[in-house]
C-alpha cells in the first residue's frame, strides 16, 4: 500500500509540476493545490499506513497509527487553503489591473 501511494504521490507531483510550468495563472494555482494533496499523502504515508487504530485513546487500547503526521497535515490543510485564497485573489487582482492572466504577456507590461 505504501509503495502504491508513493507512486500516486509521484504522479500527482508530476501533474502539479506540469500545471505550474504553464503560462496561465489559474493552472499554476491549481498546480499548487495538487501539490498540497500530494504532500499530504506523502507525509501521512511516512508514518506508516494502517499500522494501528484511530489515534484516540478512548476508542481502543492501541496500537495507534502515528498521530504526528496527522497533526502536521491538519495544520498544512488549513494553511494551504489560506495560501490558495491569497493566490486566487492575487491572480484576479492582476487580471483586473493588467487584463491578462498569461505570465509571458504580463512580462511585457511596463512596471507600475
Amino acid at each position: 500500500m505504501e509503495s502504491l501511494i508513493m507512486i500516486l504521490v509521484g504522479i500527482l507531483a508530476s501533474v502539479g509540476t506540469y500545471l505550474i510550468l504553464s503560462r496561465n495563472i489559474i493552472r499554476v494555482i491549481l498546480g499548487t493545490a495538487i501539490y498540497s494533496h500530494a504532500v499530504h499523502l506523502l507525509i501521512l504515508t511516512m508514518g506508516g499506513l494502517k499500522k494501528g487504530d484511530v489515534p484516540i485513546l478512548s476508542q481502543s487500547e492501541g496500537p495507534f497509527t502515528d498521530a504526528l503526521p496527522q497533526a502536521l497535515i491538519l495544520t498544512a490543510i488549513v494553511i494551504s487553503f489560506a495560501t490558495t485564497a491569497l493566490l486566487l485573489v492575487l491572480a484576479y487582482r492582476t487580471y483586473k489591473t493588467n487584463g491578462s492572466d498569461d505570465f509571458h504577456e504580463l512580462r511585457e507590461m511596463p512596471d507600475e
Binding site: 508513493m6 509521484g10 504522479i11 501533474v15 504515508t45 511516512m46 508514518g47
Partner: peptide, 30 residues
Amino acid sequence: ISILVGATVTLIGLAVVNYEKFETISTYFE
C-alpha cells in the same frame, strides 16, 4: 521536467517510508 520531478518525489518517498534506522517518536505522544 514534470516526470523527472514526480519520479524524484517517488524516489524520496520510497526511500523514506518503512525506514527502520531510527525509533519512532510518536509513542511519546500516546
